[in-house]
């Protein structure tokens, strides 16, 4: 099975907001480019035989908070397996769905519910939405990199004693008050970056697939991907970020 790359796509219909299927396309394309046969399995609330350890990579897209309790109920029997999974294998969770894996979710209507508790984080739903670009540095699989994407923030993320995934250079990040972006736990990435983050930032995709190959005992791909288009995209979006008007005060890009 070493030449098969198995992707588990968690609740694609229940959690579907921002073109997030692009991340599946990115991992799949990189796996195919490296000569793997790629299988994408959709895990739904009706899946009976879910075992995280059957997968090389798991992806959980952002969704409407109203559905989270049902998802937490589904995942609770798999909490230990997921905890084991992220010790060595890559998991990508984006946007609001971080709350599913956190400790507590506080909703605007003054009630709370428990998340899976895989992360020691609390999430607090905001009464207003904040949407913006997001630009940060991070390290994954021992590789330093910069990420650019978008953020539609429906909640603040108090990460307590967890480790942030990134250090903001521009953007709202976890709370709009610090330079913390997301959480990293083991090989699990929990980020506010929405949409096709792995398409826009293929250097992260490459590291995820490098890690998958390492886990399989394979040598990472020697032929580098041509990222010219994405690098050009990165430059022009960075130019937008550097020149646009903003009310954010947690990041002062012009001073960096």
């Amino acid at each position: 099975m070493a030449n098969i790359l198995r992707i588990g796509w968690l609740f694609p219909n229940t959690l579907n907001l921002h073109g997030d299927r692009g991340n599946i396309l990115a991992i799949k394309a990189e796996g195919l480019r490296r000569g793997y046969s790629v299988e994408v399995h959709q895990i739904t609330l009706d899946t009976l035989d879910f075992d995280p350890m059957n997968y090389d990579f798991l992806f959980c897209a952002p969704g409407e908070i109203v559905h989270f309790k049902e998802i937490v109920r589904f995942l609770t029997p798999h909490k230990n397996a997921l905890s084991t999974f992220i010790e060595t294998r890559p998991l990508l969770v984006t946007g609001t769905s971080i709350a599913i894996f956190g400790k507590l979710m506080h909703r605007c209507e003054d009630y709370s519910f428990s998340g899976l508790g895989l992360l020691n984080v609390d999430c607090v739903e905001n009464k207003t939405v904040y949407g913006d670009d997001l630009y940060f540095t991070c390290c994954y699989n021992d590789k330093e990199m910069e990420i650019i994407g978008c953020q539609i923030q429906m909640m603040n993320l108090e990460i307590l004693e967890e480790t942030p995934f990134g250090l903001l250079k521009y953007g709202y990040g976890n709370t709009g008050k610090t330079t913390q972006e997301g959480v990293i736990k083991g090989q699990g990435i929990f980020t506010n970056t929405l949409g096709p983050v792995l398409i826009c930032n293929p250097w992260l995709t490459e590291e995820i697939v490098n890690l998958i190959e390492h886990n399989k005992g394979m040598h990472p791909d020697a032929i580098k991907r041509d990222n010219t288009l994405e690098e050009n995209s990165f430059k022009t979006k960075l130019n937008l970020i550097k020149t646009k008007e903003t009310a954010l005060t947690n990041t002062a890009l012009s001073e960096q």
Binding site: G131, C150, E245
Partner: peptide, 8 residues
């Protein structure tokens, strides 16, 4: 404001 590059 803020404008942003969303095509996702």
């Amino acid at each position: 404001v803020p404008h942003y590059a969303n095509t996702f």
